[in-house]
Design a binder for these strands. Structure first.
Length: 105
DNA sequence: CGTATGACGAGCC
DNA sequence: AGGCTCGCCATAC
C-alpha cells in the first residue's frame, strides 16, 4: 500500500515542529522529488480540513508566504506563524537560517 | 491518453 | 534587489 504523494506530503508537514518553517522544495526533496516543489504546493492547496496538518509552516524558498499577498489565506498564515514566535522583516520575509526546519531527528 | 492546473524554484536581465 | 521566463511534477478531466 503506497500512500499518494499528497499523503506523504501531509505526513512530512506534520513533523515540522512549532516555531519552525520548511520550504516546498525541502519537502519535495525529502520525498525524493527535488524538482517537485510545485506538486507539494498543490498538495497543500488541496489539503482537506480537519487533518491536523500545520500547513502554515510551509513557505517558499525565499522565506516568503506564497499565494496572493492580499489573500485571506496569506494573512491567516502570517498571523499563525507570528503567534508561534516567528518574525517577519519589512519585506515580509522569514529568516530561514533562524527558523528553517533542519529535519533533525 | 493528451492537456491543463498550481500555495514552486532556479536562472537571467 | 526585484521582476520575468522557463522548467518540473503529480493529479484532474
Amino acid at each position: 500500500m503506497r500512500e499518494s504523494f499528497f499523503e506523504e506530503v501531509y505526513r512530512i508537514v506534520s513533523m515540522i515542529p512549532r516555531g519552525q518553517v520548511a520550504t516546498y522544495g525541502q519537502i519535495a526533496a525529502y520525498l525524493g522529488n527535488p524538482r517537485g516543489a510545485r506538486t507539494v504546493g498543490w498538495a497543500l492547496g488541496s489539503l482537506p480540513e480537519g487533518l491536523d496538518v500545520p500547513w502554515h509552516r510551509v513557505i517558499n524558498s525565499q522565506g516568503r508566504i506564497s499565494g496572493q499577498p492580499r489573500g485571506q489565506r496569506a494573512s491567516e498564515q502570517r498571523a499563525m506563524l507570528e503567534e508561534e514566535g516567528i518574525a517577519f522583516d519589512d519585506s515580509g520575509r522569514i529568516d530561514m537560517t533562524k527558523y528553517g526546519w533542519t529535519m533533525a531527528q
